[in-house]
Nucleic acid binder design. Structure first.
Length: 602
RNA sequence: GCGCUCAUAGCUCAGCUGGAUAGAGCAUCGGCCUUCGAAGCCGAGGGUCGGGGGUUCGAAUCCCUCUGAGCGCGCCA
C-alpha cells in the first residue's frame, strides 16, 4: 500500500522534472509514514522538505508543484493537501485499503516475510555459546532469546541463516570441569576428596559422575591423571552439552551448527593464524605488555593487569592498536594484544581470531555475534584482528546484550556459579513458561539494562504482557469460530467478492488494514537494525486496535445478519489472524487458537 | 584514570535514517459484561525527554560538556 503512494510521488517528480517545473539531480531518500493525527490523512510524506535544498526551492512551493502536477495512474488518491512545514498528506481510496485484506489472505501465515523468499545472502548468527562447564543459567537467557529472535528475523527478511554455537571446549575451565567430575567420581566410590577453590560445587557435576560411573564402572579409579583427565573432560563436556541443548530446546531455540574451539587447535588453525599475521607484518616480539605511551596513570593499582603482572613474560603481539600502514586500517583497540605467550602457547584471543577467520573464510555476507556486555572489551580486538587480515569489518556485527539484575520484588537475587547458587534457565522456563520468558527479553532493546523480576513473570497477572498478545490472536480465532457456529463461515480468499470487501469502510478497519500492510516494512527495518522488539511493538499496536474495534462495535458485531458485511469483516479478521501468527512466528511465541480463562481474583 | 553502554510519566520500557500536539503497559482513580471471549474496552490524572551549551526551517533523536548508573580495562576464558 505504501509502495503505491511512493509510486505516485516518484512518477509525479519525474514528470515535474521532465516538464522543467522542478530541477534536481536525484530524489533524496524520503519517508512516507502513518500520521499520528487522523486529520493529517492516510499517509504523510516529507519529500517536499527533504528535497528543498536539492531543488533550490521552498518546501511549500515544491509541495504545491507536486499537488498541481500529481500523476496518479492507478487512481488511488482521493486528495492531497499541503500541511505544516511542507508535509504532503494523502487520502487514499477505500478499495486500496480493502485490497490489503486479500493480499494478506493470499500470503497466509507467510505474510510479512520477504518476497522473493531468498535474498541469496548467507548470514551466520552466533549466540548463547555458554561454556560447556555447566548448565544454561539465567545470565545466558537474554542473549539466547535475542540471538534466536535475530535469527528468525533475518530469516523472515529472506536471508539464508545459520545459527551457530561456539563451544569453549579448550583451556583451563574445561580442565577444571574434568577434575571436578573425577573427584565426584571418586566420592561415589567412597573416597574422601575435597573440591578445590574454583572447582564446580554444584549438583549437576555429581550427576555427570554418576552417568560416568554407570558407563565405565571403576575403570578410571586406579588410572594416572594423564588417562582419567581427558576422559573426565570428555564426559563432562558431552553431558553438559546434552543438558544445554535440552534446555535450549525447551526455550524454542535450536542451533544448526556447534563449532568446537578444541577442533581449531587440533586442526592447526590456531597456530597457522599466527603465521598469517607474522607474514603480513602485523606482529612483533616484546618482553612485556605494550601499554599506551605517555606515562599517565593507565589503570588502578588493584586492576587485574597489576594483579597478574608477574605472569606477563612477553611473547608475540598483534598490532591491534598500533598498525598503521595506510588509512584503510581503522583500528579501534586500545592496545596491542598478545597472541602467543613467551612459551609459544596461544591465548584465548588467538583461538577466537582463528574462529572468526574461519567464519569469514566460509563466505558469509553478514556475521552476527551476540555477546554479553561483559565481553564488550573483546569486540575491538576481534574487529581489529579481522581488519588486519584484510576482511571487511562491517560484515561482522556485534549485538551486546546488557547485564540484568535478577530481582524478586524489591530484593536482588545473587547468582553465583562459584558458590553453586545457579539459577538455571530450565527452572525459569518451568516456572514462568517459555513464551513469557522470551517475551520479557524481547520487549527491550539489547543495549539497555533492566531488572528481571521473578515474581512478576511467575504470576499470570497484568504485569505479564504476553497474554495480551496471545489473547488478541485467540480472539480472532474465536470470531471465526463463532461465524461457523452461526452458519456463516468465512468463504475464504478465493470466493470473497469485491462487494463483500467493499463493506470495510470504518476508519478503524482501514487503520488496521493499513497497519497490516506494514508488517513487511517492520520486519525489514528490524532485521537491518538487528532489533526484534520493533516487531513486538508493532503487534501490540495492531492488537490494541483490534480489541478497541471489537469492543466499540459490539452492537454492530462482525458476525451479523448482513451476510455481505459479515464476509467483509471476517476477511479482515482472518487477515489480522494471519498477520499476527506470522509476526508471532518471527518472534518465536505461540499463536494459540484458544486460551483458558484466567484465575479468578478479587 | 581510560573505554563501552545507558539516563524519557510513580514503576518497566517504546519512540524508525532529525519532522506536525512525546507514546504503550503496569500502578492509581472513575465508568462498561442481555448479543462475536471482560486476560478486554472507554475516560482521567501524571513529563523542564538527567543538567547546560551548540548545529537548523525543526532536536527526545545529531555534536560538545557536566552529573549519575552499569559493564569492561589479564599472557582467564
Amino acid at each position: 500500500m505504501k509502495l503505491l503512494v511512493r509510486e505516485v510521488i516518484d512518477e509525479t517528480l519525474a514528470a515535474l522534472k521532465a516538464a522543467g517545473t522542478l530541477s534536481f539531480e536525484a530524489v533524496p531518500s524520503y519517508n512516507i509514514e502513518v500520521p499520528k493525527n487522523l486529520e493529517h490523512g492516510d499517509w504523510s510524506c516529507n519529500v517536499a522538505m527533504v528535497m528543498s535544498k536539492a531543488a533550490g526551492k521552498k518546501p511549500g512551493d515544491i509541495a504545491d508543484a507536486i499537488i498541481k502536477g500529481l500523476v496518479d495512474r492507478k487512481s488511488i488518491v482521493v486528495s492531497v493537501e499541503k500541511a505544516g512545514p511542507g508535509f504532503l498528506n494523502f487520502r487514499i481510496k477505500d478499495a486500496v485499503f480493502q485490497a490489503v485484506a486479500r493480499e494478506v489472505l493470499k500470503a497466509g501465515k507467510t505474510f510479512g516475510r520477504s518476497q522473493p523468499k531468498s535474498t541469496g545472502k548467507k548470514m551466520l548468527v552466533e549466540f548463547v555459546s555458554a561454556n560447556p562447564t555447566g548448565p544454561v543459567h539465567i545470565g545466558h537467557a537474554r542473549g539466547a532469546f535475542m540471538g534466536d529472535a535475530i535469527s528468525r528475523l533475518l530469516d523472515a527478511a529472506g536471508h539464508d541463516v545459520t545459527r551457530e554455537f561456539y563451544i569453549n571446549d579448550a583451556g583451563n575451565q574445561v580442565e577444571t570441569l574434568g577434575k571436578t567430575v573425577y573427584k565426584r567420581y571418586q566420592q561415589l566410590y567412597g573416597a574422601t576428596v575435597e573440591l578445590a577453590e574454583g572447582e564446580y560445587p554444584a549438583e549437576y557435576v555429581i550427576e555427570i559422575a554418576k552417568t560416568w560411573k554407570a558407563e565405565v564402572g571403576d575403570a578410571f579409579l586406579a588410572k594416572p591423571q594423564a588417562e582419567w583427565l581427558p576422559a573426565a573432560i570428555a564426559v563432562g563436556i558431552r553431558e553438559n552439552l546434552k543438558a544445554i541443548r535440552a534446555t535450549l530446546a525447551k526455550a524454542g531455540i535450536s542451533h544448526d551448527t556447534f563449532f568446537s574451539e578444541a577442533s581449531l587447535h587440533a586442526s592447526g588453525k590456531v597456530k597457522s593464524i599466527v603465521d598469517v599475521y607474522k607474514a603480513r607484518g602485523v606482529t612483533y616480539e616484546a618482553t612485556e605488555g605494550k601499554r599506551r605511551e605517555k606515562g599517565e596513570k593507565v589503570r588502578s593499582e588493584d586492576s587485574n593487569a597489576a594483579k597478574f603482572a608477574d605472569r606477563q613474560l612477553g611473547g608475540t603481539f598483534l598490532m591491534t592498536a598500533t598498525y598503521k600502514e595506510n588509512e584503510k586500517y581503522v583500528l579501534k583497540d586500545e592496545e596491542d594484544r598478545i597472541i602467543l605467550r613467551a612459551d609459544g602457547t596461544p591465548v584465548y584471543l588467538t583461538a577466537d581470531l582463528a574462529y572468526h577467520k574461519e567464519k569469514f573464510d566460509r563466505g558469509y555476507d553478514l556475521m552476527v555475534d551476540v555477546f554479553g556486555a561483559d565481553h564488550a572489551g573483546h569486540v575491538p580486538r576481534i574487529q581489529s584482528g579481522m581488519t588486519l587480515l584484510g576482511f571487511e569489518p562491517k560484515k561482522l556485527q556485534f549485538v551486546l546484550v546488557q547485564m540484568m539484575r535478577i530481582v524478586r520484588g524489591a530484593e536482588e537475587v545473587k547468582v553465583s556459579k562459584r558458590k553453586g547458587t545457579l539459577f538455571e534457565l530450565s527452572d525459569l522456563i518451568d516456572e514462568a513458561g517459555a513464551d513469557v520468558c522470551r517475551f520479557i527479553f524481547l520487549m527491550k532493546t539489547a543495549n539497555a539494562q533492566f531488572d528481571f523480576d521473578l515474581d512478576a513473570v511467575k504470576t499470570q497477572s497484568k504485569e505479564n504482557p504476553v497474554f495480551y498478545f496471545q489473547y488478541g490472536h485467540a480472539r480472532c480465532a474465536s470470531v471465526l469460530k463463532k461465524a461457523i457456529e452461526k452458519g456463516v463461515p468465512f468463504v475464504g480468499a478465493e470466493a470473497l467478492t469485491e462487494a463483500q470487501l467493499g463493506k470495510l469502510v470504518l476508519p478503524e478497519e482501514k487503520a488496521m488494514l493499513k497497519k497490516m500492510s506494514l508488517l513487511g516494512d517492520v520486519v525489514t527495518g528490524a532485521a537491518e537494525k538487528l532489533e526484534p522488539h520493533h516487531v513486538l511493538y508493532y503487534c501490540q499496536e495492531l492488537i490494541a486496535d483490534f480489541h478497541s474495534y471489537y469492543t466499540k462495535y459490539k452492537s454492530d458485531p462482525i458476525v451479523s445478519a448482513d451476510v455481505e458485511k459479515t464476509q467483509g469483516r471476517l476477511a479482515m479478521v482472518a487477515a489480522l489472524k494471519h498477520t499476527l501468527a506470522s509476526a508471532f512466528g518471527i518472534l518465536g511465541i505461540e499463536a494459540p487458537e484458544h486460551m483458558e480463562a484466567p484465575p479468578e481474583e478479587d
